[in-house]
Deep mutational scan, measured.
Amino acid sequence: HNGKLCKLKGIAPLQLGKCNITGWLLGNPECDSLLPARSWSYIVETPNSENGACYPGDLIDYEELREQLSSVSSLERFEIFPKESSWPNHTFNGVTVSCSHRGKSSFYRNLLWLTKKGDSYPKLTNSYVNNKGKEVLVLWGVHHPSSSDEQQSLYSNGNAYVSVASSNYNRRFTPEIAARPKVRDQHGRMNYYWTLLEPGDTIIFEATGNLIAPWYAFALSRGFESGIITSNASMHECNTKCQTPQGAINSNLPFQNIHPVTIGECPKYVRSTKLRMVTGLRNIPSIQYRGLFGAIAGFIEGGWTGMIDGWYGYHHQNEQGSGYAADQKSTQNAINGITNKVNSVIEKMNTQFTAVGKEFNNLEKRMENLNKKVDDGFLDIWTYNAELLVLLENERTLDFHDLNVKNLYEKVKSQLKNNAKEIGNGCFEFYHKCDNECMESVRNGTYDYPKYSEESKLNREKIDGVKLESMGVYQILAIYSTVASSLVLLVSLGAISFWMCSNGSLQCRICI
């Protein structure tokens, strides 16, 4: 991952900044910058967002509201009850120091605090018919004063009620008058409520006091790749198909172990950190130390980045220098085999997901714990399936590479015959000098055995068991695999060879 928040398929997220979902939807004055928000790819909250409900109280069923919003990608904020005409018999300019803005008392931008007009609070009834052709999110509140005197001074009615009804919602609220500790300079409380109004449905408000009335509502448009994440990451000019709280993932790998919460087309989250597919040879310690064997393909974004291909070729060293050249036929066979294998694994496992966190309130801790156990169970199954699949494929890959290298080895052996000696570690020792032209003939299969047989015969008789390297004779190393990324691999195959001279070296080696 890149540690950044990015656009998702070209669409920017909605960053709530210092506000949370509650503050944004109710219209906390400190969240005025969010009022123009219309569309987004996903919503970003920060872990310690401080601006929620400015007048103390709870947004009821907040967790369910977050779940609903996680599939919303755009909205239209509109005046559901026009301020100047909807409440002619009531005062609608209630403000509070708890919702101060720029040093002055204020109130929510989407709600109206209705109080008595003169000395009376006549029963009010108002309704709205949803003609938007889509779901409408309606929010309101109920004020709970701290004393009967406060109730009387604001609403005149000691036994007030609030009723809200639609086809799918029907509740009646009565204020709970009680002494409470002071929070944000208030002994009173406000509880906030919401409902989704279906197209064509009607919502009716009736009250004799204590109503925090809707002013603006939201017509919602769903987008199934949307979601809500909690993150401290910063926004950058970048684009992605998959976003996590820790950063964007741009990967076609089937798995990731970065974060379980994802938005967009994302690899499946697994616990494993070692889900690797081999593309090189079986481990040979001396070669492995030099980083030549054991190439791997990573299938977990965050564990290993991208696929690494092994390729086969020849390396030689003689009086004229040293050089490398790919054996294109065996390399292409290996590439085709690995590509098919990788595609097979991805096809089997690479279903892209959006995974969002589930919200539970403080009273639902047991449910949250149960949900976590269920999620953990599914996660263990996914991890096991992934590891088992790759384990089985790896064994076949190792066998496949062994065969490829063996074929190259036999190709060289059949040409050199007794003009060189096998020394048991995949290397041959020449009994004759071999210049670049000679080396090329070994690589392309045109090695002239009779041409060098007499010199080889004489050297075999002279050496008589002495280690060949100390006599200045020449080696050919018969097994060799270097490691390159897919891009470098293609470039390498396009070149005939490249040279690395070893000044004054008397050794001649050709490596497979």
Rank of each mutant, 00 (worst) to 15 (best):
L253C: 14
V405D: 05
N361P: 07
Q288W: 04
L275P: 01
C511M: 11
T351H: 11
T331Y: 03
T305P: 15
K417N: 12
S492M: 02
L398C: 02
V261Y: 15
H401I: 10
N404Q: 15
I300W: 02
F428Y: 13
G357K: 05
K467F: 01
S414G: 14
C242T: 06
V374R: 05
S502C: 01
I476T: 11
Y431H: 15
A325V: 15
L275M: 10
C511F: 12
K413V: 04
N444T: 09
A326L: 08
L416T: 09
D376S: 10
T331G: 04
Q317C: 11
L370Q: 07
V342H: 12
N362G: 06
Y312W: 09
E440I: 04
V390C: 10
E265V: 05
S414K: 15
W382P: 12
D399Q: 07
K358G: 15
C238F: 04
H432P: 09
E301W: 05
Q328I: 15
M367G: 05
L487T: 13
I338V: 15
G424Q: 08
R396K: 11
S330T: 15
T354I: 08
N362F: 11
C434E: 13
T351L: 13
G280N: 03
N407V: 07
R276V: 12
I463Q: 07
Y269V: 01
L493W: 14
V270L: 15
V466D: 01
E429G: 10
W304C: 07
S272E: 00
T446E: 05
N343A: 05
I300N: 01
K268V: 12
L391W: 11
Q246I: 14
W382G: 08
K433Y: 12
C266E: 04
G337K: 15
E422L: 10
V488A: 08
P267E: 02
D399R: 07
N350M: 11
T397F: 06
G294C: 09
F428S: 08
N252A: 14
L388H: 11
L392F: 15
S234M: 04
G445C: 04
V405A: 06
L477A: 09
L468M: 07
R276P: 02
K457W: 10
K372D: 10
S330Q: 08
S251D: 02
V342F: 03
E455N: 07
Y480N: 13
E429D: 15
S505T: 15
L379F: 13
Y447M: 12
G472L: 02
Y474S: 09
G321C: 09
W382V: 06
N419K: 14
